[in-house]
Amino acid sequence: MSTSTPKENLVMEHLVSLTYSEELTPILERYVDALIDGRIVGHKCPSCGRVYVPGKGYCPICVVPTTDADEVEVGDHGTLTGFTIITPVAYYGQTETEPFVYASVLLDGSDSNLGGQEVVGVPHDKLRSGMRLRAVWKPKSERSAEGVSNRGWGSVSSVIDAFEPSGEPDKDRAEYEEHIF
């Protein structure tokens, strides 16, 4: 039996990665094609009229299918409905090192907001719910389908860098109250 002093536990960090590509659903393919073209499209429920961006192929509230025939274009201006400032935590794959904005933006003409958006051109302490924003598009040559997945990640990040104040007057809370999710 060993009588040597106990050693610290040996911990080995071992990274395993798996890279794969996936076929986008037909709805997301149309959505990405439109994004690269500079348009944001969604589906309008034929029953209640709510617009989902991107289209889901159904309205989760009415439980009815939606198709290409229900496709509508929404604006690239929108309203900040909620936000926080994230202090990034380091982990494998994290490239952020400085606090960043994590905002939900309700595009004009849409009923579902875009989550996790960066907001630039305004100091963090001047951000407020109700603020009007507009999309900062990437140059057309830099737009791609990268990051768009069937699991709903990164729905516009490969075409829109961030949102910035549009200078329009703030919206009243009542106008976006139902969209702060």
Binding site: I86, Y91, G93, Q94, T95, E96, Y102, R151, W153
Partner: peptide, 15 residues
């Protein structure tokens, strides 16, 4: 690493 898990391995994970 729950942070990594929640972020799906991507950057801009928010925890």
């Amino acid at each position: 690493n729950a942070q990594w898990g929640l972020a799906g391995g991507r950057s801009r994970g928010i925890g």
